[in-house]
Amino acid sequence: MDEGLRSELSKQGVFTTTLQELYNWGRSNSVWPLNFGLACCAIEMIAASMARFDISRFGSEVFRPSPRQADLMIVAGTVTKKMAPLVVRLYNQMPAPKYVIAMGACAISGGPFKQGYNVLKGIDRYLPVDVHIPGCPPRPEALLHALITLQEKMRGEPLAGPAPARHADPAAPGEYPVPAYGPYDLTPAKNEELWRPAPLPRGE
């Protein structure tokens, strides 16, 4: 519908919407996160759900212990190589539509522990991440900001058409392969289809 007509109608007290908008509005205001903490950032995630920061203002206070009931995985903390297969498995167990927030420097890239032998250098090697929050640890406000960013993304997701949202696209994978423990490293060390390393600039 034309935006101008819609604005005119709303001045007359007639509110119009589409099924897509209504659907996205509903689910973006009740994002249920997985009750899933890995390290330091999880404490700030808990702090965000407590009285001072009060994540329930944004409809996300319902932390679900079971992945089957959750929409959002907040990867809050360092993902080690020993933990990475379990994180991927938890993601696979979540029902679509599902979203991932990488909270903190460790979840994004390994952060301060990047040089460690048992530290995964970013969860986006195995999972599609929707919102990255920098910080070590990010403040609770930053998590709230990431949640609002995610809600905006959800509201703009088309359910049909040439480029539908991930959960509405039958060709998009709903599950990702779980890496196995190898003798020296995880096998494979990254999901090649999902993640490619940044190019090394030349002539520096």
Binding site: Y117, K121, Y184, D185, P197
Partner: peptide, 17 residues
Amino acid sequence: DFPMRKDYVEPDDYEYE
């Protein structure tokens, strides 16, 4: 392997940053 040994060689998963 025994990662805390001084001659331990880490898996080569560095990337440009």
